[in-house]
Simulated assay, not measured.
Amino acid sequence: MRLVIASCSVDYEGRLAAHLPRATRLLLVKADGSVLVHSDGGSYKPLNWMSPPCTLAEADPDEVEAELGVTAVWVVRAPKSGDTLRIRLFEVLSDSSHALGVDPGLVKDGVEAHLQKLLAEHITTLGAGYRLVRREYMTAIGPVDILCRDEAGVSVAVEIKRRGEIDGVEQLTRYLELMNRDPHLRAAGPVRGVFAAQEIKPQARTLATDRGIRCVTLDYEALRGMDDAEARLF
């Protein structure tokens, strides 16, 4: 990422025209090619920007621009639309580049990995007599989040989501079709499915019920031991 702090003016030409008069701003040039113009305010939103794919070319100012004190010009152009961002630099206060590497993305508290670990530790949340067999039970098309057995010894496949939607039910359905071909898993009866999430969309719940899959809404705080539902006054 390239970070440039400069006194500049910015003109955008495309579906509309926009002009930013001369001021000191932060210019971000990201590895994906995007260019963003920020001020020291307005929270996270840039004043103007160009999303990839786009090209950035640095040019010398023309005679008129040079007379106004422009030292360099950035021309950022989107090849498909022809939209153009023209940034005129008057004075560069700082210019630095940094290799940030691959970002792992935002990890939210309570995502599937945390829920899986907590539910495995408190497997009786699913019912009295439930016993954990293993986490990440591997099938030919991927791992089931939790494999456990109920009080009768019947195998139960548990798919865990932070937000339960139709694609999660479809995923669990495919796992169950494969697992029910295994005579060892079917020893005490057909493998049953549990679709567990902090929030389950009505359409997903309807589909799961139609396919004989039990839906369980998980209380993350209760699983962590921070919220005892039975001890609430209201």
Rank of each mutant, 00 (worst) to 15 (best):
G14M: 12
E177H: 11
H19L: 01
C215V: 10
R131N: 08
D103N: 13
K108Q: 10
E58L: 01
P183I: 05
A120P: 09
I5N: 04
T206I: 04
E121Q: 15
E170W: 08
I213P: 03
E170D: 14
V194I: 15
D11N: 12
F90I: 04
R174M: 11
K117T: 13
V111W: 08
F90R: 10
A17E: 10
L106C: 08
H38T: 00
L172F: 09
A6W: 01
G14P: 04
G127C: 07
K108H: 06
T206M: 13
A197H: 08
A196W: 03
E177M: 14
T139R: 07
R2A: 03
V29Y: 14
N48Q: 13
E112A: 13
V102E: 13
T124Y: 00
I87L: 14
K45S: 12
G110P: 09
A113F: 02
V144H: 06
K80S: 14
S34C: 02
R2M: 07
T209P: 00
L100F: 14
D210K: 15
V216F: 13
M50D: 00
V133N: 05
K201D: 14
L126T: 06
A23W: 06
E221W: 11
E170S: 08
G142H: 12
P53S: 08
A23R: 15
A187D: 07
A204R: 09
R162I: 00
A23H: 09
N180P: 03
D11L: 11
L3D: 04
S97E: 12
R232G: 00
A197F: 09
R224C: 15
E67S: 14
L89P: 01
Q171K: 06
V156Q: 10
V73S: 02
W49K: 13
S155P: 04
P183M: 07
S43V: 01
E159C: 04
R192V: 05
R88E: 02
D219P: 04
T173N: 13
G193D: 04
T71H: 01
V76E: 02
S43A: 14
L28D: 05
P61G: 02
T139K: 07
D11Q: 11
V158Y: 02
G212A: 12
Y220W: 11
V144D: 02
H19D: 08
D182N: 15
P21C: 01
L93N: 02
R214Y: 01
R134W: 00
L106N: 05
E112R: 03
M179A: 05
F234W: 11
L172Y: 05
H122L: 01
S155E: 00
P104Y: 11
M226I: 02
D219F: 12
Y137E: 06
E159S: 12
V37A: 05
V70T: 05
D182V: 06
D32G: 03
S9L: 07
R131E: 13
G41A: 10
L27S: 04
L20C: 10
S97D: 01
S96C: 07
D62C: 06
L147F: 11
T125Y: 15
L26Q: 10
G164R: 12
G168H: 02
V92L: 01
R214C: 07
L172H: 06
R211I: 04
G82Q: 10
P52Q: 09
L147V: 07
N48E: 11
S81E: 03
L106M: 09
R25F: 03
P52C: 07
V4R: 10
